[in-house]
Design a protein around this nucleic acid. Sequence first.
DNA 1: GGATTTGTTAATGTATTCATTAACTGATCA
DNA 2: TGATCAGTTAATGAATACATTAACAAATCC
Lengths: 227, 227
Amino acid sequence: MRALAKEQKNQSSALIAKDQIKQLIFSGELLADSNYLETELADRLGMSRTPVRQATLMLEAQGLLEVQPRKGVRINSISIKDMEDIYEILTELECLAARRAAQADLKKTDLKLLLDAINAMETALASEDREAWAMADEAFHTELVRLGGNRRIESMVSNVNDQVRRARAFTLNMRPLPTKSNKDHKKLYTSILKGNAEAAHDTHRKHRKNASELLISLLKNAGMKRV
Amino acid sequence: MRALAKEQKNQSSALIAKDQIKQLIFSGELLADSNYLETELADRLGMSRTPVRQATLMLEAQGLLEVQPRKGVRINSISIKDMEDIYEILTELECLAARRAAQADLKKTDLKLLLDAINAMETALASEDREAWAMADEAFHTELVRLGGNRRIESMVSNVNDQVRRARAFTLNMRPLPTKSNKDHKKLYTSILKGNAEAAHDTHRKHRKNASELLISLLKNAGMKRV
DNA sequence: GGATTTGTTAATGTATTCATTAACTGATCA
DNA sequence: TGATCAGTTAATGAATACATTAACAAATCC
């Protein structure tokens, strides 16, 4: 909490607006396929239209919303096809990161955060705490990509992830507990440590493929056309 | 020309500024690793700071520049490591698109633009017109990605491409004429038409790998640390 | 002479004002 | 009755005004 406030200290209102609007979208306070006027958002965030507008333009560039003149900004929803497209990209980029990480001759100490995340998932599974599991899972994937050592992949993955955040949150409680997935994580961890690049790549590809197929079938079964 | 002017008719100044600043960067009128004040850019573009600022924030999100308070916007240069990172991503995404295109059961008519580009490259090679070749090559790659049918890949590739545009332009006249590369293009064309997804993927991977290795060695030989 | 501090400058970041224009309402006409 | 057109409204998009603050310079103190 304090860290967050501190972090925002030297940020411009535009960047604060960007983060806050993102949060409002993720939390569902701003609904997908709905429009919100700039004035409305400015009031809500307690600032003038100027930084809010800057934020919306940045978020439009990221694909989270569309600025529709005289109608307000429209929060983009995600179709099943979108989900498939996004997961395809996500898979490709993460697998690339996994391969790179395995080639980077990393030591156990380098992989500490990755292992921490794996353990956190195990704990969360034991106590059936889905929220905690989701957080640890995200930490795992973030750290994996970071270990890949390609900054651009990091930011691209982060951007794309933002676009499916709502869908993931939506299905979190519909999913069976992913008891099996931690086996994949451990296998990947070992491959990276051993420097087995292709194994890391392939393991992760299967993992991601399973996860995305599950997610998409859950959405379909729930009759969800858009999220 | 007229099309461009027309295109800009209904665009906001912010979007015009974004395009124009990009052009200024690509053409080298704005130098990498140099700073330009917002006022300066606004004067140059004949508009007020407001839309210019919006443009710079969008371009910062895209990674082309950095907004440095009180120092002006700094045009980002690209290191060899950056080039490697970028080409790695580009390769992965384009190969994905190639695979998808091959799976999409496309007919000859669908592949017309791709073939046009191949022919244009051949013509350009015959007359040793590097500029024309580069344009056709870009058209080929753009169309390939479009045929992949994943909009997000299109925009990501386009963004990433923008980041290496200067480097490519720089080496264009240093390169030997890429007489061999059109064989790769034709092979890819055939693979897509025949629906041979893995061949399309692998052909393009090799093609991209060669191209990036060549580009990077050219930059290294030229003693270029940053572009 | 060097370091520190205060004052000034200038560029950013935000708010506000203004102009433009799409959307809506109602009225007129066929 | 329905359609078209004028007038009004309201939201955007841009310019300008204003506040803030980092950077630089000058002056003072040790």
